[in-house]
């Protein structure tokens, strides 16, 4: 890959992730604020954001936090909340053909819903380059870690982010990306299964279980959907 090509791919990635980084900043800030409220020091907050780097499970951890912290309960909760990563990683792995062996593991370790979704959307149109993925993942990772530090230090100053609609940035982006995945009735079945499972689990079980439930239901729906059209119900 030429350096010009590298730079262009990197910039493409940066441009794609920038709005999501901006949307993640207030959420990271809120996380830092909540963590400070739970008695985590700025160092502990930054360590968690840098090493765990998973917003969903970090917020769940804040819900479950005890004094002293229970590593088994929190580790298990993180495992459950991030079960969707298994399917996401399996799906993304098929688009990592341009990645060298040493690049795939760090790429997967910084996989988050946001950069994963953009990478999958890119891979539908053209081969996914390591430079593009770096452009997605690096600012998102740094933004998340720095925003949690900011929240930990200055959290008390922040008002309610819901007032500005910023909390809605993630669902809005996900819906737009989702529309790009539409490929007819098969997609419809997958989405219906995912929505029903997610809604059911969301109303019955606290925490982020509903995401894994929806992902699994969508996978099952796709597995069950007829390969031959004449079998269609």
């Amino acid at each position: 890959m030429t350096s010009r090509h590298f730079r262009r791919e990197l910039l493409d990635g940066l441009r794609a992730i920038l709005p999501l980084v901006l949307a993640a900043l207030p959420i990271g800030f809120v996380f830092g604020t909540v963590a400070a409220g739970n008695g985590l020091s700025p160092l502990e907050t930054v360590l968690m954001s840098a090493l765990v780097f998973a917003g969903g499970s970090q917020f769940v951890a804040m819900d479950l936090w005890t004094h002293p912290a229970s590593w088994s309960a929190l580790g298990f909760a993180a495992l459950l909340v991030n079960l969707r990563h298994i399917l996401m990683g399996a799906s993304l792995a098929r688009s990592l053909g341009l990645f060298r062996r040493w690049q795939t593991v760090p790429a997967l370790l910084v996989m988050a819903d946001e950069n994963w979704a953009l990478a999958e959307a890119r891979a539908r149109r053209q081969p996914l380059s390591p430079a593009f993925y770096l452009g997605l993942a690096l600012p998102f990772y740094c933004g998340w870690v720095l925003a949690s530090l900011g929240g930990s230090l200055f959290g008390a100053l922040l008002g309610d982010v819901a007032v500005y609609g910023l909390d809605f940035a993630f669902p809005a982006v996900f819906i737009v990306l989702l529309m790009g995945f539409w490929k007819g009735a098969d997609t419809g079945r997958v989405l219906a299964a995912s929505a029903v499972a997610a809604l059911t689990v969301h109303s019955l079980v606290p925490g982020a279980w509903y995401i894994a439930a929806g992902a699994l239901a969508g996978l099952v729906a796709a597995l069950l959907s007829p390969v031959r059209q004449e079998v269609a119900a």
Binding site: R84, L87, M88, A90, S91, R94, D113, A117, E120, A121, F168, F170, P171, F174, I175, L177, L178, F181, W182, D186, T187, V190, L191, A193, S194, A195, A197, A198, L199, H202, S203, Y210, I211, A212, A213, G214, A215, A217, G218, L219, A221, A222, L223, V227
Partner: peptide, 23 residues
């Protein structure tokens, strides 16, 4: 299974947004 895996991205996105969209 290969085909089913391509359903994962839309299924995850749908699951993430459904509670916001409906409930």
């Amino acid at each position: 299974l290969e085909r089913a895996l391509t359903a994962v991205p839309p299924a995850v996105l749908m699951a993430v947004v459904t509670p916001t969209a409906i409930a």
